[in-house]
């Protein structure tokens, strides 16, 4: 705490230090940060039934068209694998995150993300996954997976991510 205090005091003197100081004072932990980061390349170390296993060997996300929430054939294929995996590891619970790209207003995107997350959940449930194991949450456009304001980035941000809890 003292150190933090000192650091802040120093920051006061440095007007420009605002943003870094923010990080210091504001606890780096971010609520529900998408877990999609840090993909593990070391497949050999992956233990079956874990989040890593799911992300690496199953695929944790599906993508949507602009302002859409229907599932594409590719998405269904991914979800089929997810359902299979989930039916294998029945103790696992998941939360499906719905995300939108930046080209929408904040609140509408929250609603849209919820639609997407539910589309994923409903598909998994239809494939035999117990609905009680599936939670949903929408982040709207608050947690982009890819930075940038171009079609490539937007396409990757319009997504439904299945997070193993």
């Amino acid at each position: 705490m003292r150190l933090k205090l000192l650091g802040l005091a120093a920051a006061v003197a440095l007007l420009a230090a605002c943003s870094s100081d923010q990080d210091a004072a504001g606890t780096g932990s971010v609520t529900g940060a998408t877990s999609a980061t840090a993909p593990t390349t070391n497949a050999g170390a992956v233990r079956p039934g874990t989040r890593q296993d799911f992300e690496v060997n199953v695929g944790d996300r599906v993508f949507f068209g602009f302002d859409q929430y229907d599932l594409s054939p590719e998405a269904r294929s991914t979800l089929d694998r997810q359902a299979q995996w989930l039916n294998q590891y029945r103790a696992v619970t998941i939360q499906v995150e719905g995300h939108a790209d930046e080209r929408g207003t904040r609140e509408y995107n929250l609603a849209l993300g919820e639609r997407r997350a539910n589309a994923v959940k409903n598909y998994l449930v239809a494939r035999g996954v117990d609905p009680n194991r599936v939670g949903v949450i929408s982040y709207g456009k608050e947690r982009p997976a890819v930075l940038g304001s171009n079609e490539a980035a937007w396409a990757q941000n319009r997504r439904g991510v299945t997070v193993v809890q």
Partner: peptide, 18 residues
Amino acid sequence: HGLILSAVLHVSAVLLAV
């Protein structure tokens, strides 16, 4: 003003932290 503001902010930040 900016400086003062900043100072105020930081002080509040410290308080928050403390």
